[in-house]
């Protein structure tokens, strides 16, 4: 598998800094699980942050702080951490962590909710009030009317694929869209496309996949 569409510096740096909210971070972390290249970039960013930390010197007398630490450390029992060996069962798992834990299982365990026109969704709960997170299953070969977005959107492909213009998005690929982008995605023939879609919360159905079925829901 070769991931072709990656995270932007903007999302990645916010994730590295810990300032990215939970909903977006779920899509970012799930892409990272499938993409060694972006993990390498994340690693470099954390290295840069470490170098900034080195330079953040404020000379201070640390005698008092060190004394406080020692008093505290006396009460600490260090737990032995057993490093987990990679799980031996190499059966095909489609949904990577952390996503799988959020939805409570892999594809076979999911309880899809029909949206009509052959599309399904699962709403994923987070504590993040600023995003909507959902897993979507879109029927193979389904075209999507032209539209623009309002607000940021991340779409991570987990199974199947979709075309957006000349670009093909397959497993592991992440599409980042914002308000300026006009695009015409279409799920590829042959296999349903399963995606994780994160959108800004107040704009309920801004995801292109959800717009496909929006007329039926009359929301």
């Amino acid at each position: 598998m070769n991931v072709k569409h990656h995270l932007s510096d903007e999302f990645l740096i916010e994730y590295a800094a810990g300032s990215l909210s939970e909903g977006w971070s779920l899509a970012v972390a799930s892409h990272l699980a499938l993409c060694p290249e972006c993990r390498q970039r994340l690693h470099a960013m954390e290295g840069a942050a470490g170098a900034l930390l080195d330079k953040a010197d404020e000379s201070a007398n640390e005698d008092e702080a060190w004394a406080r630490f020692k008093a505290r450390a006396a009460d600490i029992k260090v737990e032995e951490v057993k490093l987990e060996a990679p799980k031996a069962t190499k059966q095909t798992v489609v949904l990577p962590e952390p996503l799988r834990s959020y939805v409570g299982g892999d594809l076979a365990d999911l309880k899809w909710r029909a949206l009509g026109r052959g599309a399904y969704q699962i709403l994923i709960e987070t504590k993040d009030k600023n995003t909507q997170v959902r897993l979507l299953r879109i029927p193979a070969g389904k075209p999507v009317p032209e539209h623009t977005h309002e607000g940021r959107e991340l779409t991570l492909v987990l199974a199947g694929s979709f075309h957006d213009g000349e670009e093909l998005f397959a497993r592991g690929d992440i599409e980042e869209a914002d308000g300026d982008l006009l695009h015409t995605p279409k799920a590829t023939e042959g296999e349903d496309c399963i995606c994780l879609a994160v959108t800004e919360a107040p704009l309920k159905f801004s995801s292109w996949i959800v717009r496909l079925v929006q007329p039926i829901l009359k929301i």
Binding site: A29, L34, A49
Partner: peptide, 29 residues
């Protein structure tokens, strides 16, 4: 730095989901 960052995230009661290198779906380098 990553430890300090995570302490700060916890202090503000936020969540930062992370990948798991031991997950069978994880694509290794």
């Amino acid at each position: 730095y990553t430890i300090a960052r995570n302490v700060r995230i916890d202090a503000y009661r936020r969540k930062r989901p992370e990948f798991d290198m031991n997950d069978p779906a994880f694509v290794a380098d």
